[in-house]
Nucleic acid binder design. Sequence first.
RNA 1: GCGGGCGUGGCGGAACUGGUAGACGCGCUGGAUUUAGGUUCCAGUGGGAGAAAUCCCGUGAAGGUUCGAGUCCUUUCGCCCGCACCA
Length: 855
Amino acid sequence: MAEDTEAQAGTFEVPEYDAQAIETKWQKTWEDEELYKTDTDPAKPKKYVLEMFPYPSGDLHMGHARNYTIGDAMARQARMRGYDVLHPMGFDAFGLPAENAAIKHNTQAAKWTHQNIAQAVKTMKRMGFSYDYDRMFNTCDPEYYRWGQWMFIQMWKRGLAYRATSPVNWCPTCKTVLANEQVVEGRCWRCGSVPEKRNLSQWYLKITDYAQELLDDLDTLTGWPENVKAQQRNWIGRSEGAEIDFKLADLDGVTPTDRTITVFTTRADTLFGTSFMVLPPESALAAELVAGTQYEADYLKLKAATEKVSSVDRQGSAREKHGVFTGRYVVNPITGKPCPLWVADYVLLDYGTGAVMGVPCGDQRDFDFARKYHLPIPPIICQKDDPLYDRLKDERDLVVTDVDWDQAMAAEGYLVQSGEFTGLLGGKHSPAVAAIEGWLQEHGCGRPKVQFRLRDWLISRQRYWGNPIPMIHCDACGDVPVPEDQLPVMLPEDLDLGAGDTLAEYAPFYETTCPVCGRPAKRITDTMDTFTCSSWYYLRYCDPHNDQAPFSKEAVARWMPVDNYIGGIEHAILHLLYSRFWTKVLRDMGMVDVDEPFKNLLCQGMVKDENGDTMSKSKGNVVPPSSVIEPYGADTMRLAILFVAPPEKDFNWDPEAVAGANRFIKRAWRVVWLLAHDGVRGEVVPAELSKQGKDLWRQLNGLGIKCMQDYDRGQFNTAISACMELVNAASGYVNAPGGEEDAALRWRVAHDIVTMLAPICPHWSEELFHAALGLAGSAYNEPWPEFDADEAKSDEVEIAVQIKGKVRGHVMVAADASKEELEAAAKEAVAAQLEGKTIKKVIVVPGRLVNIVAI
RNA sequence: GCGGGCGUGGCGGAACUGGUAGACGCGCUGGAUUUAGGUUCCAGUGGGAGAAAUCCCGUGAAGGUUCGAGUCCUUUCGCCCGCACCA
């Protein structure tokens, strides 16, 4: 009988691995059978796996391929592990590139967009991604953007959407305003132009209402990478301090008036050191105070100069500060002394109160400014070992002119010349801060204040290809929302962008009547930032065909939050912060029950070229996915991408690594065929296996468990390496197989290899599942194999014998040896080296090592 | 300046809660198959010494805790990323 088996194995010819034929065949079958339709079995636990949807600017690139391969492996694995899986895909279809392409090629933005989408979908299908295409939508579909408009109106009703006039970032190239988040390193996030400051009437969403919660809830996001959370904390920029009221002095420069100017500071402890106050050039108050005075001309010059200097130049130059005196004074509330009121370009209008108390001793910027304009630098903080401390600690109001500093004092130190507070320890959150804030509050001229760096989200864009803001401006009634039964405000698709048509000048769009008074009125022609569209798309996937509401509460309750969200780090602030905000707003509207939309976040690393440079069309170093799919197939591509590095790390494209992945897939193909052809489906009885069969069985269980744990951790590279080890072991077995007694084992190992690799190489697995294993149905629906940790243990293990922590030998012992037996065996193994030494202590770690402490 | 992360062979990377550092792969070396190249298969591959058993050194550097440290603590050097005149 055994002879027969061997003879068969010898003559059996393994079919060739033809990736192209296999992949096209199964892709068609999967589509015909709707294999990836979302499960709806409430008895099962759910898993929502989502990859950040793409902007359809052309075909998919390597970054997309990596992103979606990671998500697909997660989704497939979850399904096989018994989860009800939601794994959708769609397109973030509004945006400037489509509009620019339409202008350039004299076509329509919609047409260009849909062509790109068609191509991208084709590539997604070619990659074998398991999306539920029935749930696919594009944000430019009226059925989708309708609800974005509806949500805007709900926010408007709640006071979370508003219109305001203020200095905004205007990109001269994109011809639209930008949100703060979209000005990256002082430049437009999309085109790199330096935005201008313009004073415009724009629409905002009140994200600042949620600043504290957005910050606090970051602590609950244990499944998010630290750097993303850090970036968001940074961006929200919470800072604890105090507001302090200074009275504006009368024209005599001494007598306090009724007008106050309030500053924000985190360093109330340095109040005694305030020698001037600064307003920003844009300040309306400053303009008013200098109007008609001798100081006005200089002020206007500074204001004009500041407007001209871009934010990039402001950072790039040596940061020289410019200022002018206003001719007026303010009164320091704690000393009663007058301080000159200046205007300077280093103060920001929109942070804090837009006014700063100048403390040159404690702040480098104030110090630089004081030096340049010869303002006093009163010492109010120093170290106890500084001779200055002894000189000043008991004196009051000493004018010190002989200090020889070239920079402000260290942030922490002891107060001097600070009245009753002299001697207290000063610094951020110091006793001195608390004491002086207490004094201010008691005297009614100050109060604690929490300040955020985060500004409201500017969402209006002066562009065509976006979701129209559903508002109407009526001269009589003001801004009124479009009635909800008239939604969506349809974006007209017959504009001739090539000829310069814009929404603002397109009468058929903007001409309307006021829904309140019925008189002629004008539609708002701004569209919404595309990030509004991507702020809730993950909710729509839960219920994509709903035409009564954006989604049903039940559907969202079933699937949210997203369990695994995968995408690029470039959205660390923009999309991920906006989506968190949007979710919280919808929660407060009673539409969703979750506080946070994304439970686990994975920011995949970049795919760079062979030299470590980012791939780009202009550099000509782009490796398109097709260059791998065509010669090797999608499965090799997927395997290579996941194996070469952990998902969150950048990696350099390496053709050798791809060839290696292809080598493995072919080797595994052969091994599976040989095992399966010679195996029989049935229960493995470990006790009856051949010797080499027992070894293989043990390894199967051990590696199966390791592989599963690695999948759970999202460590695909090591999950694959476990599969490789198993294939290596099986390959060794095939070269010297056991007999009939191993038939069930052979089949089982073949089956498990196919199953364990199914999330990564789905076509390869599906083909073997049917052709080699002779099974019906789909490998995608195959339950994950069960492994037994006990079966992974061998009877004997090799343990290390250490002397004082250094490995000095190895010894084979029974796996279930007692500590005493281990110790005895270890001592024997290194007896020679223990000679003449005294054993102080022996540490026994069963299954691993024995450490003998001997001197 | 503030915040986050990372330093392991020739390379990508393993080592999950301290327990035999370098799994797995790439590359390289030798061998088999082949007319040859390629493919495939077998063996080897951190550095140093040695014929070998074996020994010494090794996770950016220096200290520390521990029977034992890539892993924990302190200091330090280097690199990457984010924010930045935010008061």
